[in-house]
């Protein structure tokens, strides 16, 4: 097939595939289900962040 025809056809096919996948992700709420699955693991990341201690002088309160 001529490249000038092939490229747009492949692009259209890829676009259609992406669209179909996005519809499935949207309808079955797969985006939020993925976030839900990752949430506990990502939460642990924040436990290891270095934080400044909190020692206000007594006269503050």
């Amino acid at each position: 097939m001529n490249k000038l025809v092939k490229i747009p056809v492949v692009a259209a096919g890829a676009g259609a595939g992406l669209f179909a996948v996005s519809i499935v992700v949207y309808y079955f709420n797969l985006d939020m289900r993925l976030i839900e699955a990752l949430h506990p693991y990502l939460s642990k990341w924040y436990d290891h962040i270095e934080r400044r201690p909190f020692n206000p002088p007594k006269e503050v309160f």
Binding site: Y26, Y27, F28, N29, M32, R33
Partner: peptide, 10 residues
């Protein structure tokens, strides 16, 4: 019972 719904509305 999960964090999110099983699907979106039609």
């Amino acid at each position: 019972g999960g964090k999110t719904k099983i699907r979106r509305e039609w």
